[in-house]
C-alpha cells in the first residue's frame, strides 16, 4: 500500500515535469509567434508591439500568441497541482513530513517558485513573458531532483525527527522558492537594460515591471528566510548543543542573508537603486542555490544528511 503510494508520488512527479516542459514549449512558441508578428507589423508600419498587453483584442496574430501564452499558464497551474499531489503522496508514503532529503527539497522549492509565480501573474498579468524564464530553472531543478538527487521514500534519521524539521525546512524551502522568482526577474532586468539579446529582451515586461516584481517578492521572502534561519538556530540548539556554530550551511545562509540585506540597502542608496541592486539580488539567489547544492553535496558538515549517502 505504502510502496504503491510512493510509486504514485514518483509518477505524479514525472507528470509534473512533463507538463512544465510542455508549458515551456508553449511559452517559447509565444515568443516565436510574436517575433514573426513583429516582423510583419514593423514591415507594415504597424504599432509598436509594446502595446500588445493592453490590447488583447488586436490582430489575429497577436491573439494567437496570447492564446499560446494562456495555454502555457494553464499548464503551469496543472503542473503545480500535480507536483503538490506528488509531494503530498510522498509524505503519506514515507509517513513523515515530505522534506527529508534533497529530492524532496528541490521538489518543494520548485512548487513554491511556481506558486509564487502564479500569484504574481494574477496580480500583474503583464509579467507573463517572464514565465518561460521562471520555468527554466524550475525544470532544471526538477530534472536534477528526479535523477541525481532522487532518493526512495523512507523514514529519516533520528537527527531529523523533530517538529523543527517541519518549521525550519518548510520555511527555508518556501523562502528559497520565492527568492527564485526575484532572482530570475533581476537577471531579466539586467538583460533588458543591457540592450543585449534584444530579440528576446524586447518582449519582456518593462524594466520597471521587472524591478518591482523582484523587489516585491524579495521583501516577502526575506523575512521568511530570516524566520527560517532563526528556526534553524532554535533547532540546532536542541539537536546539536549550540544555536550557531558556523557550520558551512549556517555560514552560507548567513552570507545569503547579508547579501539580501545589502539588496534592501542598495534599494535605499543613491546610485545603487537600479542596476547594482539587481546584481545584488542575483548574487543573493546564487548564494541560496550554492547553499542548497554545493554545501549539501561537496562540503561535509552537520547538515550532511541530504539523503545522498
Amino acid at each position: 500500500m505504502l510502496t504503491e503510494l510512493a510509486l504514485y508520488s514518483d509518477r505524479l512527479f514525472m507528470a509534473a515535469v512533463g507538463v512544465f516542459v510542455f508549458a515551456m514549449v508553449l511559452h517559447g512558441s509565444e515568443y516565436a509567434v510574436q517575433r514573426s508578428a513583429k516582423a510583419v507589423l514593423v514591415g507594415a508600419g504597424g504599432p509598436a508591439l509594446d502595446e500588445h498587453e493592453s490590447h488583447p483584442d488586436g490582430t489575429p496574430v497577436r491573439s494567437r500568441s496570447e492564446r499560446l501564452g494562456r495555454m502555457g499558464v494553464a499548464l503551469v497551474v496543472l503542473g503545480a497541482v500535480l507536483l503538490a499531489a506528488s509531494i503530498v503522496t510522498r509524505g503519506l508514503a514515507a509517513q513523515r513530513w515530505p522534506l527529508g532529503n534533497m529530492y524532496e527539497f528541490t521538489s518543494a522549492i520548485s512548487l513554491a517558485a511556481v506558486v509564487a509565480w502564479l500569484v504574481v501573474l494574477r496580480r500583474s498579468p503583464a509579467s507573463r513573458p517572464v514565465g518561460l524564464f521562471v520555468l527554466l530553472p524550475v525544470v532544471i531543478l526538477l530534472f536534477l531532483g528526479g535523477t541525481v538527487l532522487y532518493a526512495p521514500a523512507a523514514p529519516v534519521m533520528p537527527a531529523l525527527q523533530s517538529y523543527w524539521l517541519v518549521v525550519h525546512v518548510t520555511a527555508v524551502t518556501i523562502a528559497s522558492g520565492l527568492l527564485m522568482v526575484p532572482g530570475v526577474a533581476s537577471l531579466l532586468y539586467l538583460l533588458r537594460r543591457s540592450g543585449r539579446l534584444s530579440g528576446v529582451a524586447d518582449r519582456l515586461p518593462s524594466v520597471d515591471v521587472l524591478d518591482r516584481l523582484a523587489y516585491r517578492l524579495t521583501i516577502i521572502a526575506f523575512p521568511l528566510y530570516t524566520f527560517a534561519i532563526i528556526a534553524g538556530a532554535i533547532w540546532a540548539e536542541a539537536a546539536w548543543g549550540r544555536f550557531w556554530g558556523w557550520d558551512p550551511k549556517e555560514t552560507v545562509a548567513f552570507v545569503a542573508w547579508v547579501i539580501y540585506a545589502a539588496y534592501l540597502h542598495a534599494r535605499a542608496t543613491a546610485g545603487w537603486r537600479s542596476g547594482p541592486a539587481a546584481w545584488v539580488n542575483v548574487a543573493g539567489f546564487a548564494a541560496v542555490i550554492f547553499n542548497l547544492f554545493f554545501i549539501n553535496m561537496v562540503v561535509s558538515g552537520l547538515h550532511s544528511y541530504a539523503g545522498l549517502g
Binding site: G245, W246, D247, P248, K249, T251, V252, F254, V255, V258, I259, A261, A262, H265, A266, A268, T269, G271, W272, A287, I295, V299, G301
Partner: peptide, 27 residues
C-alpha cells in the same frame, strides 16, 4: 552613511565565505 553600510555588508558576506569553503579549526 548608507554607502559605507552597504560596502561593509558586502565585505561581511565575502569575509564569511572562506569560513564555509575552507576547513575550520573550530569545526
Amino acid at each position: 552613511s548608507m554607502r559605507t553600510a552597504l560596502i561593509l555588508l558586502f565585505l561581511l558576506a565575502v569575509a564569511a565565505l572562506p569560513g564555509a569553503l575552507l576547513p575550520q579549526r573550530s569545526l
